[in-house]
């Protein structure tokens, strides 16, 4: 396993605020993610997990605060957002694969048209990834011919094939049948082994405990509690956290 590099954060966020009209979704959120680290965001729906991820990808414009990626202020208004989004991959709950493209073309699209790689080069990278997740024989299939787990793994590979500095996973297993969750979680474990830096919103508490290094509990747009994963689950301090964990583990 690759070691976490604590010398300087890959991503640093300070005082992130996001509101829609009068509804405050994120109040003042601070976040630090170090290279090779996996940070799990937990919290009930509506707590702001997805919104936070979307803000980090600059898909949502923040209303206050600052975000730095490797020391560069990516929340500065003059910054080239498309360039930053190349560096920060985002995978959605509902896969969002392009329905008109084959699995292979889904992965090569951004490699070719964003990173400017040749067709052959892009396909080599894509096939390598597809081989790694055991879907090489599905390269020419279209997304609707694949199972949910296969589609979601393709979506994750589509993002990591660009070699982003940070990978954001937004409840990537929530839309899957229980027996398909495992294969997606295995891929995430595999990515952790190879040193990918990940921030993931998740409902899979046991997975968060096993794989994440750091856990953040969001409640009503604020970080209610955070800590090193094992300690966080063994010994939650806030009453809200205890209540939340009890409710989810009781199921």
């Amino acid at each position: 396993m690759t070691e976490i590099d604590w010398s300087k954060p890959r991503l640093l966020a300070r005082g992130i605020r996001k509101s829609f009209d009068d509804r405050v979704i994120l109040d003042s959120v601070d976040l630090e993610v170090y290279p090779g680290q996996i940070v799990a965001l937990i919290g009930s729906s509506g707590s702001g997990k997805s919104t936070l991820l979307r803000c980090l990808n600059l898909i949502e414009e923040i209303n206050d605060g600052q975000i730095w990626l490797e020391g560069e202020d990516i929340s500065a208004p003059g910054v080239d957002q498309d360039r930053i989004r190349q560096e920060v991959g985002l995978v959605f709950q509902s896969y969002n694969l392009f329905a008109h493209l084959s699995i292979l073309d889904n992965i090569t699209l951004a490699l070719r048209h964003v990173q400017g790689k040749s067709k052959a080069e892009a396909e080599e990278i894509a096939l390598q990834w597809l081989g790694r997740i055991g879907l090489a024989d599905k390269a020419q299939s279209f997304p609707d011919k694949l199972s949910g787990g296969q589609q979601q793994r393709t979506a994750i590979v589509r993002a990591v094939a660009l070699n982003p500095k940070l990978l954001l996973l937004d409840e990537v297993t929530s839309a899957l049948d229980p027996e398909l969750v495992g294969e997606v979680l295995d891929l995430i474990k595999d990515l952790k082994q190879s040193g990918t830096t990940i921030v993931m919103a998740t409902h899979e508490l046991s997975f968060a405990r096993d794989v994440a290094d750091w856990v953040i509990f969001l409640d009503k747009g604020l970080i209610a509690e955070e800590g090193e994963a094992a300690e966080f689950f063994r010994n939650p301090k806030q009453p809200r956290t205890k209540e939340f964990l009890a409710r989810l583990t009781a199921r």
Partner: peptide, 25 residues
């Protein structure tokens, strides 16, 4: 919610950002 839209004061960074966007517009 701990703070509402009413008692929130934008930071200087945010104000500078808004000024920049306004100028660009």
């Amino acid at each position: 919610m701990t703070s509402t839209a009413n008692d929130y004061q934008p930071s200087e960074v945010e104000l500078a950002r808004r000024a920049f966007r306004l100028e660009r517009k």
